[in-house]
Computed example of a mutant assay.
Amino acid sequence: MSFFSRRKLSEQELNNYQQQLNEFKYKITKFEDRLDKLQNDLECKSQGEPLQGVNVINAEEAANRVEKAAQKALPHELKEAFDEINSAVENEQQSVRLFQYELGAYVCANGKPQRKRIYHIDALSKKLKKYGYETKLDSNGPNSFLEVSWKGKETSDISKIDPAKKYVLPLEDTECEITDSATGKAISYEVAYACPRDDKWRIIYDRKICSDAVIVPGKEIIDVPKWVRSIEPIEVDY
């Protein structure tokens, strides 16, 4: 059995993907603008000011909406976080800071400037911990950040790994839908996989029905970094 071969994307496909990414970022910004308005409305209500032309919601519902926004953005933010971690590893660093907002960059919401969000650092912290990373939140208003650190290699549970077989190591909650910019319909799905490249483990994005680019021989999964060790390997028939 063979898997799909990797091919070089055409310029048109690259442009389509970039357009989809820009649209996704725009939708997140608009949704966060709505959340900011809800928070402002709640603040007015708590101070006894009248609300005109708005639907009043309680604090629990507002918190639930914020949580849903964070979970919706999580796959994209995980990809961005892994890219920053990979870059830090390339520079032989042991940690990286992921800022909640762009520093020095502002967008207007509700008639007032505010910084554009990059990460929902609370939700991201919980997810990265599942992959063995050490995380520390530094809450400082618009300058808040998540510090992510990692250590060296550990021995994985070799009872689950057959050195003679091959596996894929997909990271959970990283599936991203790729849509056709013209029709808006899903044409493919991407998932983040852990793969060794140039003697280092990296995050590679590939199709949900993976190609041979993300298949890893079992013998290479015996001595791995802690975050790779936390991923459940899936045997492939190759």
Results as ranks from 00 to 15, higher is better:
residue 173 D to E: 15
residue 141 G to D: 01
residue 194 A to T: 14
residue 185 K to W: 02
residue 193 Y to T: 02
residue 197 R to H: 03
residue 138 D to R: 06
residue 181 S to A: 13
residue 149 S to E: 01
residue 168 V to H: 11
residue 200 K to D: 10
residue 153 K to P: 00
residue 133 Y to C: 12
residue 161 I to P: 01
residue 138 D to E: 04
residue 212 D to M: 08
residue 170 P to V: 01
residue 141 G to C: 03
residue 155 T to L: 10
residue 205 Y to T: 04
residue 201 W to L: 09
residue 206 D to F: 05
residue 181 S to H: 06
residue 153 K to S: 09
residue 143 N to G: 09
residue 205 Y to R: 00
residue 207 R to P: 08
residue 133 Y to S: 11
residue 131 Y to W: 13
residue 176 C to D: 03
residue 156 S to T: 12
residue 157 D to V: 15
residue 153 K to W: 12
residue 145 F to G: 00
residue 149 S to P: 10
residue 200 K to A: 09
residue 176 C to A: 06
residue 210 C to R: 01
residue 199 D to L: 13
residue 172 E to M: 01
residue 206 D to A: 01
residue 172 E to Y: 04
residue 145 F to A: 02
residue 132 G to V: 07
residue 210 C to G: 02
residue 198 D to P: 02
residue 129 K to V: 13
residue 166 K to R: 10
residue 209 I to T: 15
residue 129 K to E: 14
residue 144 S to P: 01
residue 196 P to S: 03
residue 175 E to R: 09
residue 153 K to V: 09
residue 148 V to M: 05
residue 173 D to A: 11
residue 165 K to M: 14
residue 168 V to D: 06
residue 150 W to S: 01
residue 203 I to Y: 00
residue 210 C to H: 11
residue 184 G to V: 08
residue 162 D to F: 05
residue 199 D to Q: 15
residue 189 Y to P: 10
residue 144 S to I: 08
residue 154 E to H: 00
residue 206 D to T: 11
residue 150 W to Y: 06
residue 157 D to C: 04
residue 203 I to P: 02
residue 209 I to E: 14
residue 178 I to P: 00
residue 184 G to E: 13
residue 178 I to N: 05
residue 195 C to I: 15
residue 129 K to A: 04
residue 183 T to C: 06
residue 188 S to R: 07
residue 151 K to G: 14
residue 177 E to H: 00
residue 136 K to L: 12
residue 171 L to R: 01
residue 198 D to T: 07
residue 153 K to Y: 12
residue 153 K to C: 07
residue 189 Y to I: 01
residue 190 E to R: 04
residue 192 A to E: 00
residue 138 D to L: 06
residue 173 D to P: 08
residue 178 I to A: 07
residue 192 A to T: 09
residue 130 K to I: 13
residue 137 L to T: 03
residue 207 R to M: 11
residue 188 S to P: 05
residue 200 K to V: 14
residue 161 I to E: 06
residue 165 K to G: 02
residue 194 A to P: 09
residue 161 I to K: 08
residue 135 T to S: 03
residue 139 S to Q: 15
residue 145 F to H: 07
residue 199 D to A: 14
residue 175 E to G: 11
residue 154 E to G: 05
residue 154 E to C: 10
residue 167 Y to A: 03
residue 186 A to M: 15
residue 207 R to C: 04
residue 163 P to W: 00
residue 193 Y to E: 03
residue 195 C to H: 05
residue 195 C to D: 09
residue 148 V to K: 00
residue 170 P to F: 03
residue 140 N to M: 09
residue 165 K to R: 14
residue 172 E to P: 02
residue 189 Y to L: 13
residue 183 T to W: 12
residue 185 K to V: 13
residue 164 A to M: 06
residue 141 G to W: 09
residue 183 T to L: 05
residue 189 Y to W: 15
residue 151 K to Q: 15
residue 162 D to M: 06
residue 129 K to M: 10
residue 153 K to E: 11
residue 212 D to Q: 11
residue 189 Y to H: 15
residue 169 L to E: 06
residue 179 T to K: 10
residue 129 K to F: 07
residue 139 S to Y: 11
residue 147 E to K: 07
residue 212 D to G: 12
residue 161 I to D: 03
residue 195 C to Q: 07
residue 182 A to Q: 11
residue 180 D to I: 11
residue 179 T to S: 03
